[in-house]
Structure formats: structure tokens, C-alpha cells
Design a protein around this nucleic acid. Structure first.
Lengths: 207, 207, 207, 207
DNA sequence: AATGAATGAGAGTTCATTCAT
DNA sequence: GATGAATGAACTCTCATTCAT
């Protein structure tokens, strides 16, 4: 049984690698098999179809990310900006640890027509909702500007992160040493979070 | 000759519609033909291949967008924040006027093989460069924070816009009346631009 | 258009031949293509699927046979036994003229799980009904014994004919010259029809 | 060893059920295994192949039927018509007692590749020969008409029975109570046997 | 220019059979 | 004996592209 799980993981790992390398559409099932060093048919022992392999990659990893998001949403001990910072850091950290996984989820799932499927849609929705919820918390407490639409903000946050991830994967953004990674995080935080808080001396709603 | 151009446009228009509707990969050449109400062999008179149809959609529209960007980059009469605001507004406006075109362009942006072709790569690069250049202008003049990496910022800007467009296309973001559109623009500006400028009273690097 | 029909017929004819030769299941689509001397894909231009090819063979030919049956059912100028004799003769004649078609219909459609499909079932039902109707006419007029169940009789008639056809196709029944064909018809008529009429001097229900 | 036989029978019984239900071609080895509630590798301990399972079903049951036929052929104490009546009754009785077995045997009879294998061919031939032999006995003794071809008659007899069985299995022929079964037998006897004997007063070959 | 029949390589999926445990 | 993971050949169907008319 443990072995069964191993095989499954072995195939999933190979699939992530080849999906990241060539894209889902260009990847043949035989490519996955070759990379995983298993027989063609075995993939159909563990998965329903090629689509199911991609879905599994998504499900397995997205649930982890979702848990992080939901925990942050419910962690009232931290400020909202602090928590959103952690969201950003987590994703960029994941990008460093498992770039192929992040790339596949972004390239082949979040983009692409797959997004349309109900199940996928709902998975994303949950993530968007969690961020929306945090922003609303911030607006209620006065921490975050009210002229930001809390429904739209998650699109901006995730969209920005998505493209940064892609840029990094494609080596358009350098991210090789700690200093570069620090700068990346700093830039994302500056652009996405500083715009959320009240500009000092401007729209302070003091009398 | 004029008729030739008409036919070409007729096909391109149909292509944009079906690509937007079903995605590039799911669209068959015969779908384009059916939508354009022409025999599908005809498509090969006007285009080299299915890919070439998509490329043409991209080229035709991207060049327009690129011109707007480059003009703004060179328009020193406006502040950088003002100009970036125009970038945002233009794109969201286009989204309202020709949603299918914008969606297809974004789809194209999102295709994982996009950077394989030199030509494509350069087209994107130019857009990114223009934004980078504006940000650098702002940093030189002191208008924009220096702790924002000017190479990374364009990814954030375009990524955010991309996802907002997708969300709008998929009706996840409502954009039906003027008020909703105003709010959308306001939110995007707040999040992406306010983070760029100096927070008053904090890190003003005064002389 | 005429050419289109020709192509379709060309493929159908080839399909009948290879189906008869190797059976539907053992026949690959490429076998049909090779036999018809057309490209593989062309078959899918004219037919939905391999199943559809078989269905078409059935539909095209069965409708002809069905018309014969229905016309006979409605031809009150002939005695029932005479008409049933014509049914038998027609089928055995068809077997002589187009053995492959008869064999395919019997082997691959009337037998086999295909029989279960509603559409097919109904096609057969009509034939069974026509025969049943003729037998009932004969029972009403006193020509045919009443202790024969008119619903069951068609099964016996068609079953016998079916197997005789198969036997002939497989060369287990010789049918090479006119004398052999005469004997075949005579035997089938004797066994299937003589049993239907009243045995003289036995159960004549005279007043 | 007894256990071995049990396992074998357990698998055969399951095989008969699923073959009857879905047909041989549509049945996967794993379906048999599932129905038999054994691991599907086990089937290959008891049988050479999927074909071998069907062959075994056939062999086991056909030999029984064949014995009945041969015993009847050699039982000169009964009239030929009486003995053929027993053939019919036996088969219809079997259909009532073990419908799945009868159906699978018939399916097997109907497989187009059945006559390819010598062994199979001979099995059928023996049954046909036995009936042919009985008819010839009847013709020699004057019990049966000479204008019936004794080689062809078995095809008619078995064909009719085959289709009646199929019709019953598919519930196209009702066979639920004793009266319906009586009528079924009566109809088959009337049609198949009454045609064999001399029509009274017609072609009596009187001295 | 316009048509759509014709082509055929390519890819996903199935499933009988084998084999290590 | 028993299990079910592993194998891979076989086969159907798709669809971009070509080409004769």
C-alpha cells in the first residue's frame, strides 16, 4: 500500500516535471511514462486519464495552499497586511522550493480553459474568498482603505503573483540568490500592499 | 484587393470570437470557418496555419497596445503615475469595448509556448520594457520609490491586469454599469499605483 | 454529390466484404480503408465511427428487405403460405446474390449484443411483426393452424433462415448449382411451411 | 483438490453470468473476477486465457447436450419424430433451468470465428450429424419425407431453436408460466416436425 | 478566389496477459 | 494458491493541412 502511494507519487512527480517543461498539451502520456520510468499502461492504473493526472497535481497541492490561506484568514492575532505579506511570501517561497509545481498549477490550471470547470472554479473561489475575507477584516478594523473593492482585490493579488511566478520560471526575473529573492518579495509587497493602506496625510479621515 | 482584406478580417473576427469562446486548443479550424461562414480551405489562402491565425490576431492588436505604451513612455509632459494610470485605463477600456480580443490576447500571453518564438518574445519584451522605462523615469525624478525593482514591477502590473480581465470575461467581476467600471479602475489604481509612491512621512529621502 | 455517394458506397462495400471475411470485431478501421483503397481518415468523413459503418450497412439493406416483407403482408391476393414462401425465397435469393451483406447482417447485427439497441430492436421488430401479421391472417382465414403461436412463429422462421444462411456462407451447405438451390428452398419450405397447414384428416375443424 | 474444482466452478459460474449479461466481447477478465469475487490474476491459474474460459463453458455444457443427442440417435425404440421432439423439449427445458448457460452456448455458436478452430468445428459437426442421422433413419423407415434434405434439416432445427432461445432470454418471448412454456413447445414442434412427416392424403407413396 | 473531399500522422485509452511477492 | 501491480501492443478517433476542381 505504501508502495502504491509511492508509485502514484512517482508518476505525479514525473508528470509535474514534463508538464512544466513542455506544457500539458504538448506532453504525451508516453512522455510521463518515460520520465517516471514506468510502463505506459501503469498510468491508467493510477489515474483515469491524462486530464486526471493534471487534476491530481492540482488537487494535491492546491489543498495545501488553501489550508495556509484559510488559517491566515482565521488568525486574528496578526494584522491583515502582515497576513497578506505571508501569503505573498509563502507563494514565492513555494516557487523557490518547487518551481515546477507552481508553474504547472499556474500555466495549466489557473490559466487555460480548465478554469471553467465547476470543480476547479470552486477551488479557486475558495482562495479568492479567503483573501477577500482578510481584506474585509482590514476594512472593518480601519486598517485598509475602503475605496478598494474587496471582491476585486484578490484578482489583482493573485494575478500579480501568477505572472511573477511565470517570469521567474522563464528566467525573466532572476531569483538565484537570497538578495534577489529579498528584492522580489520587497517589490511585490510594496506594490500590492502599500497601496492598500491609508496614505499618510492624505485621506486620513480625522476631523 | 479591398475584398481580400475584407475576407481576411472576416476570418480574423470569427477566429477571435471562437478562440475567446472555446480557447485556442479546443478550437478547430473548421470552427473558425463555420463562424466566418467560409469554406475552411479558404483559411489556408489567407493564413499559413491555425497558429498563424492566432499570431495575426495577436500581432494586429498587440501593435496597437504597444504604440499606446511607447507613446506614453515618451510623453514626458505627464507624471509617471498619471501615465501608468492611463495604461490601466486603456486596457480596462479595451476590455469593455472588445472583450473577445482582449481575452484572446491574454490567452495568447498565457500560452506556455509563447516565449519559444523569438518574435513573440520580443513583442512582450517591448511592452515590459516600456513600463520598466516609465518606472525608472519615476525613480530618477524621485516620483517613485527606489525599493521597487523596476524590472519586476511590469510583471506585477500586467499580471494583475491580466487576471482582472479574465475575471471580468468570466463574469466573476461585474462590470456592467459605469459605477462598477469606475470602482474597478479605482481598485486597480489604488493597489498598483499607490504602492509605488512614497508613503508620506515615512521614507522620504529628503536632501 | 453523386461522387460523394459513390465514395460512401465504395467504403460500405469494402466494409461489408471485410466484415464478412473477418467479423466486425476483428476488423480494424484501417482494414476497411485498405480494402476501399481510401485514406484512413476519409472513413470518418462519411461515417461517425466504426459502429456507424456497420449500422449503415444494416440500415441500407434491412430497409429493402423490410419493404418486401410489408408489401407481402399487405398483398391479400396471395395465400399466406404462398407469401411466406416468397419470404423464404427472397432471403435465399439475396444470399445467392449478395452473400456478404446477408452474412454481415446476420452475424454482426441480428446476433451480437447490438440487437439490444433500441433502434436495431425496432427494425427487427417490424420484420417480426409483418410475419406475425401474415400468420394471423392465415389463422383468421382458416389457412393456418391455430395451435401455432403467431408471436413465436417468426422467431422460428427467421432463426431457421439465419442459420441456413450462415451454413451456406461457411460452405457447410452446398449451394453451387441450381439443383442444390432448389433442394435448399424445398427443404426450408417443407420444414417451416408444411408444419403450419392443417394435417389432412387429423384436426380438420370441419362442421 | 476439491477446493481447486470449487474455485474453477466458481469462476466458470461467474463467467457464464457476465457473458450472458454483457456478451463475450464486452466482458473484461476483471469483470469475471469481480463477479467471482477473486483476484483476477487467479483466473490465469485455472484457465489459459479469456478464450479458454468461454471454451470451458462451452465444452462442459455442450458435451452434456451432445450426449443427449447421441443417445437419442441410437435409441431405436422411439420414433424419429418422438426423438426430435425430445431434442426440442430438452433444449427448451434447459433454457428454463439455466438460461444463462444456454444463452452463452448460443452466443458461442454465433461467434463468427467459431468454425476456425478445428475442435469447435467438430463439436458442432457432431451435433448436426446426430440430427442428420436421425432424419436419415426416418427417411429410411418411411417415417419422414424424402424431399427434405437431411444435411440441411439440422441447420433449420438448430437455427430455429437458437433464435427462440435468444428471444426468450431477451424477454421477447414470454415464458413465465407453464402454459406459456407448453405453447412454446407446441409451436416449435408444429412448425419444425409436422412439416417433416407426410401430409396425409397427398404424397403418400402407396403401393 | 473558393470549395470541401482527401490525407495520414499522432495521441489517448483499453485490456489481455505476465509476474513479483 | 492467491494477489493485483505492471506491461505494452492494439486500436479508435481527431484534426491540421493539402490538393484537385
Amino acid at each position: 500500500m505504501a508502495k502504491t502511494l509511492d508509485r502514484r507519487k512517482q508518476i505525479l512527480k514525473a508528470a509535474v516535471d514534463v508538464f512544466a517543461e513542455r506544457g500539458f498539451h504538448r506532453t504525451r502520456v508516453s512522455d510521463i511514462a518515460k520520465k517516471a520510468d514506468v510502463a505506459y499502461g501503469l498510468i491508467y492504473h493510477y489515474f483515469e486519464s491524462k486530464d486526471d493526472v493534471l487534476d491530481s497535481v492540482f488537487r494535491d497541492n492546491w489543498s495545501i495552499f488553501l489550508k495556509v490561506l484559510k488559517d491566515l484568514r482565521d488568525d486574528l492575532s496578526k494584522s491583515v497586511v502582515e497576513r497578506l505579506g505571508i501569503v505573498i511570501d509563502s507563494l514565492l517561497e513555494a516557487l523557490y522550493v518547487a518551481p515546477a509545481v507552481v508553474q504547472v498549477i499556474i500555466q495549466e490550471v489557473s490559466r487555460s480553459d480548465r478554469f471553467v470547470e465547476k470543480e476547479k472554479y470552486e477551488a479557486f473561489q475558495e482562495a479568492f474568498d479567503a483573501v477577500q475575507s482578510m481584506i474585509e477584516q482590514g476594512q472593518d478594523s480601519g486598517e485598509i482603505r475602503k475605496d478598494v473593492n474587496a471582491e476585486i482585490a484578490p484578482f489583482i493579488l493573485f494575478g500579480a503573483l501568477e505572472t511573477v511566478c511565470t517570469g521567474t520560471t522563464l528566467k525573466l526575473i532572476s531569483c538565484d540568490d537570497d538578495e534577489q529573492r529579498r528584492q522580489l518579495k520587497e517589490t511585490v509587497r510594496s506594490m500590492l500592499l502599500s497601496g492598500l493602506i491609508h496614505e499618510k496625510g492624505k485621506d486620513n479621515d480625522t476631523i
